[in-house]
């Protein structure tokens, strides 16, 4: 049974991944990715990773892909320019990817792995309780770090997306700006300030 699911879900995963890569329309590519994520969730279930499968569906297929779809919707036509250019780079890319795949196949076939059968695990394998316990004991640092990363990600989203809310130098009058092409020179700045100070003292009290 597991093998059947493995093969089916596996084929689905590969197919949808290929669709993502090949697809011209980014919207369809995003949809293919959702399918891909779903098939991966099925594979996680085969592996008894229940919590991971659900998290995958909720987080990835739910939140992340929705974000993608929002952005693609926002962009509209602008997202659609994708002319494929062939040439040397494309060939090299294919060869590199293929080479890595072949190497991993060779590595697998060469090794006398002792993992022909899954390990014997308890029933609570992959349950939220087990994983939660691990997060809060052995992998506490990862837990805290990931929350920090998510915070940073949120801030980044706000800053990048709503850049106009911050005061920006480029709003100043052209005359007030530093003339183009001149770099900020500490020495020149210092001399200028000195001059200004002199002029002030000269002008009078």
């Amino acid at each position: 049974m597991q093998i059947v699911v493995f093969y089916v879900a596996g084929a689905l995963a590969i197919g949808s991944a290929l669709a993502v890569v090949v697809q011209r329309n980014p919207f369809l590519a995003a949809l293919s990715l959702i399918l891909h994520l779903a098939s991966l969730a099925a594979l996680y279930l085969v592996l008894q990773g229940d919590f991971v499968a659900v998290a995958q569906l909720l987080v990835y297929a739910g939140a992340v892909m929705i974000m993608f779809l929002f952005v693609i919707a926002y962009l509209g036509d602008r997202a659609d320019l994708d002319l494929r250019r062939g040439g040397l780079g494309a060939g090299a890319a294919f060869i590199a990817g293929l080479a890595i795949f072949i190497e991993s196949v060779i590595a697998v076939s060469d090794s006398n792995s002792s993992f022909h059968a899954p390990a014997v695990v308890a029933d609570s394998f992959g349950s939220p309780a087990t994983i939660g316990k691990l997060f809060l004991t052995d992998h506490l640092l990862a837990f805290e770090a990931i929350s920090l990363v998510l915070l940073v990600g949120a801030i980044a989203g706000v800053v990048l997306g709503a850049g106009e809310l911050l005061p920006s130098r480029s709003r100043a009058e052209p005359a007030e700006r530093e003339p183009k092409g001149e770099r900020y020179d500490l020495r020149r700045e210092f001399l200028r300030r000195e001059e200004e100070a002199e002029q002030e003292s000269e002008v009078g009290t």
Partner: peptide, 26 residues
């Protein structure tokens, strides 16, 4: 279950990275 833990961590990082990337695109 350590692999699961790490996989969830990666998922979180990937989410954050997508936020940043899409923010750049926008």
């Amino acid at each position: 279950n350590d692999g699961h833990v790490l996989a969830l961590t990666v998922m979180g990082v990937a989410a954050a990275e997508v936020v940043v990337g899409l923010g750049l695109v926008v």
